[in-house]
Amino acid sequence: MSVLATTALYSLIIVLGALLGAVGVVLNERATHMVRFLAFAAGVMLGAAFFHMLPEAYAGGGWWAFALMPAGFVFLLVLERYLVAHAGEDLPGDHMSSHGRPAQQAGQVLGLTAFLGLSTHTLFDGIALGSAVEEGVGFMALLAIVAHKVPSALSLASILKSEGRSRGAILMLSALYGAMVPAGALLYFVFDAVLHFESMAPKALSFSAGTFLYIAVSDLLPHVHRHGKDQPGRNVLALFVGLALMFLLARWVGHPGHPGH
């Protein structure tokens, strides 16, 4: 398939994954192993960044791969900390929020900020997907994004449900959240076509690897640490399983143009 067709197919899979997480909440199904799944997702994202995206970015862009990876990390940190609310905040208390507002009103604000914060991440996931597909490691980016998006969509739907939103509204917002992936991929391809930078794909891939690293170490792992203290060994194992999966895929599948993998 062409790069655009592959990106469209992968985007559809990711959107369906986001909807699947939301449907689980709408149908009142509880994810009993959520923390363990988040640990696994963190391992997959770290593995995708270090074993697939960064090596491919270095092969195509040289030194810039190492310069732009921390740039992606810092950019998303600044964007999240100072421009959008952190989507991983806990739900407000039963009666009053920390700002003295009624819990329902605070919950409605949290639902919108969680949607905006998670959607911002997802937009950059789309940019990562577009550049990864163009560089030949799109399937690895797909695995990492899906592993992250399903539990994130479940969390977003849980927040929206807690503030009393209807099933239709929850599914619509979850679909919009997932749709940020094709929007981000389209944004990448538009910039690539307009700017005509031959080396844009590896540089964008390196930058995206930095955003994957940020999501794993700043969002996923702190949540696992806070809420997974009852079974830390299993959560660490889940993290290493995610890392091992991506490492083995790097060794067995290899990258186009790198037959020695």
Results as ranks from 00 to 15, higher is better:
residue 259 P to F: 08
residue 19 L to D: 00
residue 224 V to W: 08
residue 34 M to P: 00
residue 151 P to S: 07
residue 99 H to M: 11
residue 39 A to W: 01
residue 253 V to L: 15
residue 214 Y to R: 12
residue 236 V to C: 05
residue 218 S to F: 11
residue 70 P to R: 02
residue 54 L to W: 02
residue 22 A to R: 03
residue 9 L to S: 08
residue 156 L to E: 03
residue 138 G to Y: 09
residue 90 D to C: 00
residue 136 G to W: 08
residue 196 H to Q: 15
residue 166 S to W: 08
residue 42 A to D: 01
residue 67 A to H: 07
residue 229 K to I: 04
residue 237 L to H: 05
residue 210 G to Y: 11
residue 132 A to I: 05
residue 261 H to P: 00
residue 8 A to K: 05
residue 255 H to I: 05
residue 187 L to D: 02
residue 72 G to C: 11
residue 60 G to C: 10
residue 257 G to E: 13
residue 69 M to K: 10
residue 103 A to I: 07
residue 27 L to Y: 10
residue 200 M to Q: 13
residue 257 G to N: 05
residue 234 R to M: 12
residue 228 G to L: 06
residue 257 G to K: 12
residue 243 L to E: 04
residue 215 I to H: 02
residue 225 H to V: 11
residue 68 L to T: 06
residue 19 L to F: 03
residue 77 L to V: 00
residue 107 G to D: 09
residue 141 A to T: 11
residue 103 A to L: 02
residue 79 L to Q: 05
residue 247 F to G: 14
residue 176 L to C: 14
residue 42 A to K: 00
residue 252 W to A: 12
residue 17 G to Q: 12
residue 152 S to K: 01
residue 162 S to P: 00
residue 114 A to H: 08
residue 72 G to I: 05
residue 16 L to A: 15
residue 108 Q to I: 07
residue 66 F to D: 10
residue 260 G to H: 15
residue 205 L to I: 08
residue 138 G to N: 01
residue 208 S to M: 02
residue 224 V to Q: 04
residue 100 G to A: 13
residue 197 F to T: 06
residue 38 L to T: 07
residue 151 P to Q: 12
residue 39 A to M: 08
residue 93 G to Q: 08
residue 190 V to T: 12
residue 182 P to C: 09
residue 45 M to C: 09
residue 174 S to K: 05
residue 118 L to W: 06
residue 232 P to M: 12
residue 256 P to Q: 13
residue 237 L to G: 03
residue 136 G to H: 12
residue 236 V to L: 15
residue 177 Y to T: 08
residue 96 M to V: 15
residue 46 L to P: 00
residue 229 K to Y: 10
residue 66 F to M: 14
residue 242 G to A: 05
residue 172 M to R: 13
residue 253 V to S: 06
residue 11 S to D: 00
residue 86 H to C: 04
residue 80 E to S: 14
residue 150 V to P: 04
residue 230 D to W: 06
residue 75 F to R: 04
residue 114 A to G: 05
residue 3 V to W: 07
residue 156 L to Y: 04
residue 17 G to M: 09
residue 16 L to T: 11
residue 24 G to N: 08
residue 30 R to T: 12
residue 61 G to R: 01
residue 94 D to V: 14
residue 119 S to I: 04
residue 145 I to P: 00
residue 134 E to C: 01
residue 222 P to T: 06
residue 149 K to P: 04
residue 34 M to E: 10
residue 71 A to N: 07
residue 144 A to V: 07
residue 242 G to F: 03
residue 210 G to R: 09
residue 201 A to V: 12
residue 109 V to L: 14
residue 121 H to A: 01
residue 235 N to C: 09
residue 228 G to A: 10
residue 58 Y to L: 14
residue 135 E to F: 00
residue 73 F to T: 09
residue 134 E to G: 01
residue 87 A to Y: 06
residue 147 A to C: 11
residue 121 H to W: 07
residue 19 L to I: 13
residue 23 V to K: 03
residue 258 H to I: 13
residue 68 L to H: 09
residue 90 D to G: 13
residue 45 M to K: 03
residue 62 G to H: 02
residue 162 S to I: 02
residue 260 G to E: 15
residue 145 I to D: 10
residue 200 M to L: 15
residue 254 G to S: 09
residue 187 L to T: 14
residue 33 H to A: 12
residue 96 M to T: 10
residue 34 M to C: 00
residue 98 S to M: 09
residue 36 R to W: 12
residue 216 A to F: 07
residue 236 V to H: 00
residue 101 R to Q: 13
residue 176 L to N: 03
residue 97 S to L: 05
residue 91 L to D: 11
